[in-house]
């Protein structure tokens, strides 16, 4: 009902609970209840992809999903990318190849790219461009972002070998 609801979600591998109104958006729960502010709010109109998180492994716009819809499901945010042995290949790629300028789109961009590499470990430039076409960057012109993804793909391959 429009009374508050309890949402239990696995966030970055940890079970988290939040009490929210049904109208609370997933991005608001992540930022304001769980205090994970790495996920940014950009356009707030389903256009820019800045708020991208992985819901059960699929990149989605967390400004256009209700928090209650994540109940019982798995959410990965940018804070969950780093592993026990440091930055993930994608994070390292963005750092090494300067895949960011102002950094605002970066968390969403990295989430989309993380999902892409899970599905397609060796994407072509075209495949990368297509995969990130829902994530807007207004600074870099995407060239270094693409280099960062290629870097991450090589790095993952090295790590697997």
């Amino acid at each position: 009902m429009s009374d508050k609801v309890i949402v239990t979600t696995t966030v970055n591998g940890e079970e988290r609970e939040a009490t929210v109104e049904p109208r609370t958006l997933l991005v608001q729960m992540i930022r304001e209840s769980l205090h994970l502010t790495g996920t940014h709010i950009g356009c707030d109109t389903t256009s820019c992809g800045t708020c991208t998180v992985l819901l059960d492994g699929r990149p989605v716009k967390s400004c256009t999903i209700l928090a209650v819809q994540a109940n019982g499901r798995d959410v990965l945010t940018v804070e969950g990318l780093e592993g026990a042995d440091g930055l993930s290949p994608v994070q390292e790629g963005f750092q090494e190849e300067h895949g960011l300028h102002c950094g605002y789109c970066t968390p969403g961009m990295m989430m989309t790219v993380t999902a892409l590499l899970e599905e397609n470990p060796h994407p072509s430039e075209d495949e990368i461009r297509k995969a990130i076409s829902g994530n807007l960057c207004r600074c870099t012109g995407y060239v270094n972002i693409i280099k960062a993804v290629h870097y991450a793909a090589r790095k993952r391959e090295g790590a697997a070998a």
């Binding site: 389903t46 992809g49 991208t52 699929r58 990149p59 989605v60 716009k61 256009t64 999903i65 989309t112 297509k130 995969a131 076409s133 829902g134 994530n135």
Partner: peptide, 9 residues
């Protein structure tokens, strides 16, 4: 249709 993120939902 739309963009890849919207297409996931």
């Amino acid at each position: 249709v739309a963009d890849p993120l919207i297409r996931n939902r």
